[in-house]
Nucleic acid binder design. Structure first.
Lengths: 143, 143
DNA sequence: CTCTTTGCAAACTGTTTGCAATGCC
DNA sequence: GGCATTGCAAACAGTTTGCAAAGAG
């Protein structure tokens, strides 16, 4: 995600007001690479702002998503949504054990789908997900 | 997924009993390429077996998944789980408008991640998802 | 001062669970 | 007949919504 200041700009520009709650949410997201769940963000924000409501967090995340400032990512094993502040095209490493998700640079081109495989779809972008075990979980599994 | 008979084999072999309910569920799944949601399957099954319970469907799907006979697929925009009876590695075409999901053959070759990009992960498999608009939705969007 | 936003609680949706009754093998 | 499985209803988790009170611009 852009810096907190850039997000504030875009938010104001879209007609939203800047409240301390929203500012705190932006700050948790800025530069966050953990693909956090709502609950994880809630716990983090509550440290600085104990009275913030979960509903406010949900509402703000939906607004950010609508403005294209964060993306939703889901994984198969967990039902809760996770958010990705990195909205540039990129690929993912996914740990099947701990559900950790790591951004990696988009493996560029030559994935172009040949006409006969794309079934008439108009493709806008593609994403590769690599499934496996992260270094930490490999250690645990070896024991 | 394998044929209904093969699934019944594996199920029995795992110590489960074969009931008419389970048989009906296997039949809906066999050869299904729509990545159906639980609700979609429920509606379909109820035509032939109106008294079947949703809980039974959920339980059976979980058992099938545990045996590796169906996979879970999720998409960002919908919260309900969808199931994929095709458990072979394959890629997906995904329509951003109608959420249709189409299996395509795994793009084999050189997706191998160079050591320095894989961050120590032990990669087991990869999946490419192509996001875009399906032929039907392209027409609708053009109007 | 106005109109948005907040926090709370209640409502909702998708899924799981406990249990008495039923039915497979 | 014995034990797994069913259907039902209640419980749950994640998310959304309605509304009165508080607050940004």
């Amino acid at each position: 995600m852009k810096t907190t200041e850039e997000v504030i700009q875009r938010f104001r520009q879209a007609g939203f007001k800047i409240t301390p709650q929203r500012r705190a949410i932006f700050e948790v997201l800025a530069g966050n690479e953990n693909h956090p769940s709502v609950e994880a963000m809630y716990q983090e924000i509550k440290i600085k702002m104990p009275d913030i409501s979960l509903a406010t967090l949900y509402n703000t995340l939906n607004e950010l998503n609508a403005l294209g400032l964060i993306d939703i990512v889901r994984d198969t094993s967990q039902k809760a949504v996770r958010y990705d502040p990195n909205t540039e095209p990129h690929d993912h490493l996914y740990c099947l054990q701990c559900n950790r998700m790591i951004d990696i640079e988009n493996m560029d081109k030559d994935l172009e789908l040949p006409e006969e495989r794309s079934q008439g779809f108009h493709i806008l972008r593609q994403q590769v997900t690599y499934y496996g075990y992260c270094p930490d979980c490999q250690k645990i599994l070896e024991e």
